[in-house]
Amino acid sequence: MLTKRIIPCLDVKDGRVVKGVSFVELRDAGDPVECAIEYDKQGADELVFLDITASHEERKTILDIAERTASEVFMPVTIGGGIKTINDIRELLHAGADKVSINTTAVNDPEFVKRAADTFGSQCIVVAIDAKEKEDKSGWEVFTHGGRNATGLDAIEWAKKMESYGAGEILLTSMDQDGQKDGYDLKLTKAVSDNITIPVIASGGAGTLKHLKDAFTLGGASAALAASIFHFGEFTIEETKKYLKENNISVRPCQKTD
């Protein structure tokens, strides 16, 4: 049967991993490719690189990372951050990315998602949604720019629209929970997942292995994305999968690599 996916996410700035990764055995834990190799060894199911480099001129750096990763790691890699044009997507896919994640550009120009899906196929178009609970608790609002800019869009309606525009997957981050290590926003995850037929990746808030389990059992997510619990070696992917399996979540056994 189809297994639930465990996805480490690496934030990359100017070609370096930020928010620190502390794998003791890595020669250079700041090198995204070294980190990708380590997660590949651990048995991660996919990898996400989020390029948070501010300037558009620095895109060559992320392309170089995509290409070097594709030579070393034979697993699906998603790259997001700063994608503004169809050509940005083409360059990333040609450099070896399997999927691209689009956030702000989708909000500014929803038709862009349609064009991207028509050109490259839905399977490689991930729409990232950053959502915050509305003050009256009536739902969630979509934000851009790392939670600074409110858009007025309702997260559930937006996810449905992006699905109809050809997104192949939704990367759903709770801005309330992100960085809190207090668990994913399960209500948000469940509400979005129940309203669309494409897979939802839960993101923002993972602090314990139970949080990952809850994303699947209570949130209805197809995949769980996490950063710090993996980066700082609190849990390996193998420990994570062992825990999930013991809790009756279907996961892919870790492949041992040589």
């Binding site: 049967m1 189809l2 297994t3 639930k4 996916r5 199911d45 839905s122 399977q123 192949g168 997957e169 037929t197 494409i198 897979p199 209805g220 197809s222 995949a223 892919r252």
Partner: peptide, 14 residues
């Protein structure tokens, strides 16, 4: 699948 609506695309490890 397991009483959950099938997500399409079929995406992931099977």
């Amino acid at each position: 699948v397991d009483n959950e609506e099938l997500k399409v695309p079929h995406m992931g490890w099977n």
